[in-house]
Design a binder for these strands. Structure first.
Lengths: 342, 342
DNA sequence: CTGTTAGCGCCTTCAT
DNA sequence: ATGAAGGCGCTAACAG
């Protein structure tokens, strides 16, 4: 049971018989120090288990060596890979990670009080955690930021990293059309305002248009990236009697909901209707039939966002926009690999 | 584009025509301040968008108002609920959250450099992120800690919050025995040293013993809480020709792997073999057959751990151990609801 | 109720 | 290459 607050730079200096400036120099390597002295200082630090107080250092340098991370409450299993990617590069660069969730309170219209220039050098903003005003607010404060899965509001030049949504959505929908001959493809949209969802919808419309297919308003339903909402929407669709032979969902969770609804009404997948999702979450390969979807490189997204943020923090030029490639992964829910399809 | 570093307490004091102490007082409410003055100060703070610099405050108070969180790279979807529970109570108590992952480096044998008394007031340690030595190390430093899904090493009195593993495991295994008449129940163990896994194993053995069932060494295999490892283990089990009529896995991921292996060998679930998992992850209800498992109250675990840590930080008495209840959730993989079972 | 004055622990000129 | 001294922004006695 030791004191929580350990040795200070003074203790080290005294133990090594030097001034605190010298200790500071060996710690930061700012100015050359004679080998002999450096060794003594190192030894003293070891012996005293000295760790510089972050607050003191931060106060003096006006840097926090901390990156903020604003996330949304996200269902699914990509929270961990995203954070993992971020943490790896932050740690590598010797930055700590301060985290805040949008949570039940919904997206913030301004920076949450717990995260700002007063306690971090830069901020990673995940889609759904901050409104456009919030982003503008942070930018106005001069806080370095990078957006994840989200593009900046008009006139607010904040770098962002996203994944290839539109082209991938178009590709997978065209797969349903070309390979499986589907003609009436319904899409389950993401939550209103969700960019990933909107881009995926754009790709969907492109595909339909390119093949001259039905593209009326009734073909899109709200799935909200939620299993339950998707299930309800599809159930209603079925009872409405509207014809359809495929469902493309904005994400895998919604696809699972669609699958459940389809099954409960006895509709065969992929026999009668093809289903395709997006994200390639862990459950995609275990639902039945295994879900054809688009793989999202979540960990890389996190890592790349952190890299860009570090550049902004350091005053280097960051890419205004980086789009990471996605990849279609064909399984069985579209019809491939089963007697009826391919 | 403003300055990243905004107004200081001096600016506010000047604007309000008072001393910095007064400003400090209205901020912290430590000492009564006349209403008139308080109002002027509040106004000045608003106008200047004043936010106290965390470092300065921390340096002066010797408190960071920050909780550290040490996590492991965890597969599955319980990262988000856990963090969500923690964040809710931390935010409520006005604490920031500093996070670090054990990551590819594996569990730390000591506190990671990025997390310690120098930058947080207390630390939440998730199972698999820190070794017993690491826990002892943190305790020796006098850093308030609370362990999650992990009990403290002998002689190191650190509070912990866990879930009911043993009894729940016993209950679900007995379900397989009593309700479904299973006699040769194999268990897929978690990673060596994982406490949840070990407690679940204990419950499994209890159940077997209580019913006088085969309990030889060959009945347990390593599943490592991984889909792939579990699949491999079960495949090997099947090819070995050893008889078994049920599989209890330490977690749902392993259950999925078991299901895959069983299916690839044409073994009917639950007809020929019953399967049961643990955790009730999101995929549990979508695999086929839907997985009978035990629900783990992940978000509550996070919240409770944060609450206990706050108590320790404040010097109040914390419960040395809180065990949250789990609940068996019956689906189809055990045999219930299908023609063969129940 | 309010102002003055020391530090909190570290970095950083400025001398030497 | 090293030491001395000031200051980062804030809180906390201590006077009044």
């Amino acid at each position: 049971m030791g004191e929580t607050l350990g040795a200070t730079i003074h203790d080290v200096a005294r133990a090594a018989g030097v001034s605190i400036s010298t200790v500071s120099r060996v710690i930061n390597g700012t100015v050359p120090v004679s080998n002999a002295v450096a060794a003594r200082v190192e030894a003293a630090m070891q012996a005293l288990r000295y760790v510089p107080r972050a607050a003191a250092r931060s106060l003096a340098t006006r840097r926090t060596q901390t990156l903020g991370l604003l996330m949304a409450n996200m269902a699914g299993d990509f929270f961990e890979p995203l954070l993992s990617g971020i943490e790896a590069v932050a740690t590598e660069a010797d930055y700590a990670l301060l985290i805040s969730l949008a949570g039940r309170r919904g997206p913030h219209g301004a920076l949450p009080p717990g995260l700002g220039p007063h306690n971090c050098d830069g901020l990673l903003v995940f889609a759904g955690s901050l409104t456009a005003e919030g982003v503008a607010h942070g930018h106005a404060l001069g806080l370095p930021m990078v957006l994840i899965q989200l593009r900046p509001p008009e006139g607010v030049p904040v770098p962002c990293v996203t994944i290839e949504n539109r082209a991938a959505a178009r590709e997978i929908v065209e797969h349903l059309i070309v390979v499986h001959g589907r003609r009436r493809i319904v899409m389950l949209l993401g939550p209103a305002g969700n960019e990933d969802g909107e881009r995926r919808e754009a790709g969907y419309h492109e595909a339909l248009a390119a093949h001259g297919l039905a593209n009326d308003h009734g073909m899109t339903l709200r799935g909200n990236f939620e299993r339950g909402a998707a299930r309800a929407a599809v159930s209603q669709l079925i009872t409405s009697g509207a014809p359809f032979d495929a469902i493309f969902t904005g994400d895998d969770e919604a696809a699972v909901g669609a699958l459940q609804a389809l099954r409960s009404f006895g509709r065969q997948v992929p026999g009668e209707v093809s289903v395709a999702g997006f994200d390639d979450q862990r459950l995609a390969e275990v639902v039945s039939p295994p879900l054809t979807t688009v793989h999202a490189p979540t960990e890389q997204v996190g890592a790349e966002a952190a890299r860009q943020l570090l550049r902004v923090v350091r005053g280097e030029a960051a890419k205004p926009r980086v789009v990471l490639p996605t990849k279609m992964v064909i399984r069985r829910s579209c019809g491939c690999g089963s007697e009826s399809g391919k």
